[in-house]
């Protein structure tokens, strides 16, 4: 009896210690990756990074054009993707809550949410780049928008579903139409959560590389032309990191540092906002 008891206790201890070790293992990677980024990227951080263009191999330069390109592509993608996503989420949570259509859209949307982003790149290549005959910033922005949409649809629907029905009933009782109730009451109540969704989408796309590789491509020079290839930070990192030149690799690390901390800051802000939204 006592031996059985001891064996059970031992097994429990082994399991608990392994769960502790597993957690340390998981957290260890975070420390290792972020540590390497700071170590390799921080020394390259200077004013020149934000004021100069990407250099030819062997000379000094910065990351101004890819940073600008990333900002433009991201902003445009959010501008295209958000209204569509919000409206679709609105239908699912408000008008068609118990519809068959909503059920199907939710299922498909969840699949789009985790679909491989390189496939999105191929899709935009087929429908935009190939017919237009050349790579363009616009195609890159549309590719990113395709990634934004499912994120926004999901959060909009979730957040609108959290709005208590009594609010809607009170507004309808005042004689407002559904459309006004949704826009003036429900959107306002769910605003923080919906904004969180947009932030998460921005965090998601600002590091995306695969869909840009054959849509926006890359551009060595300063260009704001949406009809021409456009540089972006992730693609430049990809190109520079795989190059044999030491200065390019250095710039790649610096770019990686900038992206990572932007993305992590965005997702932490989104989290804090979501937590506050739930409290009120």
């Amino acid at each position: 009896m006592n031996r059985l008891y001891a064996a059970r206790r031992r097994r429990n201890q082994i399991a608990m210690i392994s769960s502790l070790l597993a957690t340390a293992f998981g957290l260890g990677w975070l420390v290792l990756v972020l540590g390497a980024l700071l170590w390799e990227g921080f020394s390259g951080l200077s004013v020149a990074v934000f004021t100069e263009m990407t250099p030819p191999p062997g000379s000094a330069g910065g990351l101004l054009n890819p940073i600008m390109g990333s900002l433009i592509l991201t902003a445009l993608a959010v501008l295209i993707g958000t209204p569509l996503g919000v409206l679709a989420g609105t239908y699912m949570a408000e008008y068609g809550r118990y519809d068959h259509l909503t059920f199907v859209v939710r299922f498909i949307n969840d699949i789009l949410l985790s679909a491989p982003s390189i496939v999105v790149g191929l899709f935009i290549y087929e429908v935009l780049v190939a017919p237009m005959g050349h790579f363009s910033g616009l195609a890159g922005a549309v590719a990113l928008a395709v990634i934004v949409i499912p994120v926004v649809v999901r959060t909009t629907e979730d957040m609108l579903l959290l709005v208590p029905n009594s609010l809607r009933e009170a507004a309808v009782a005042l004689g407002l139409t559904r459309a006004v109730v949704i826009r003036r009451v429900c959107y306002r109540a769910a605003r923080a959560g919906m904004l969180t969704g947009v932030l998460l989408a921005v965090a998601r796309i600002s590091g995306e590389t695969a869909p840009l590789l054959f849509t926006a491509l890359n551009n060595q020079f300063w260009s704001l032309d949406l009809n021409a290839p456009m540089a972006s930070l992730p693609v430049v990192i990809f190109q520079f990191a795989l190059s044999p030149y030491a200065d390019w690799q250095k710039l790649a690390w610096t770019g990686a540092l900038i992206i990572t901390f932007t993305v992590l800051a965005l997702s932490i802000i989104a989290r804090v906002m979501a937590a506050q939204g739930k409290q009120t």
């Binding site: 975070l30 990756v33 980024l37 590091g207 993305v263 997702s267």
Partner: peptide, 19 residues
């Protein structure tokens, strides 16, 4: 912290993995 691992863009894992 564990979920932040999912937030790090995949290109970062790439450059870290390579170098």
């Amino acid at each position: 912290a564990i979920e932040l691992l999912a937030g790090i863009p995949s290109i970062i894992y790439g450059i870290w993995g390579l170098f």
